[in-house]
Nucleic acid binder design. Sequence first.
DNA 1: AGATACTTGACTAAAGAGATCATATTTATA
DNA 2: TATAAATATGATCTCTTTAGTCAAGTATCT
Lengths: 141, 141
Amino acid sequence: MVISARVHYACVAMLELAIQHDDGAPVAIREITDRHGIPGPFLVQILRSLRALGWVQSIRGSQGGYRLSVDPTTITLLDIAEAIGSQEAGCRTEGKGTPIATMLQEQWDDAADASRSILGQATLSGLVERTQQGDASMFYI
Amino acid sequence: MVISARVHYACVAMLELAIQHDDGAPVAIREITDRHGIPGPFLVQILRSLRALGWVQSIRGSQGGYRLSVDPTTITLLDIAEAIGSQEAGCRTEGKGTPIATMLQEQWDDAADASRSILGQATLSGLVERTQQGDASMFYI
DNA sequence: AGATACTTGACTAAAGAGATCATATTTATA
DNA sequence: TATAAATATGATCTCTTTAGTCAAGTATCT
């Protein structure tokens, strides 16, 4: 479960789109890159991947941008990390199937599963709710 | 928590030394590389790091080899992974401290902590016991 | 003396991460 | 119908890390 910049940016983008999911207007790349300091052309690449997954929809031309095309309650950070991140989440042992290697592999798998379990519970909609509550609480301090 | 080949090999080596910890005789590199198919010079590199940490002791000359120089009940896979693996376990966000980025970072940290928690419970002695029980059970089938 | 085994430092090849660029193409709107 | 605002696409590039290699040296047992 390696969280690369690519994965992180993909999650940021999905969350931004989830926040504005109810608005009809699409969100321009510029809006996201400006807000988060993400290199523009890099985010373009990432959004292409997200579109290929069918998770976002692009609208070309003036006033164009991106829109979430899935239900934000069904997508988790785990989904994004596994789809965008490098394949092979675990560690390839490959050597020989010695008892030690086998048992170690189980430990690596257990550790990876523990991470996955956390990220698999974090839905886009859940996180959006959290950020908005977090924002609101700032006014009460 | 990236488990590279380097970390995996380091754990294999530490476990091999832990198994033969009670014997007086040191373990030769060849013994470990032959058993696990690890590239010899690579394991040498790794053992150097382990020695620098004070976890193993080397005996030069004929009949030489390596010996564990710490109590195997006190070292966990987490210790090895963090010492041998690349520094910076988590994900550096760096961008801007937007609410979304901050909250995402918390999720990455939570996920990493979950992994660390698993690996932090796996002591060398505990794992040695497990492998030996695993081996023993093969005779009962 | 000779075989065995560790020591040390430098070096290399391949892969992945993180972009960056130039050149289309599409569409709203003035 | 221009034109500006956006996305589309494919190629390319640099840097770092990972994994592994090599050569020459030193210590110790028998």
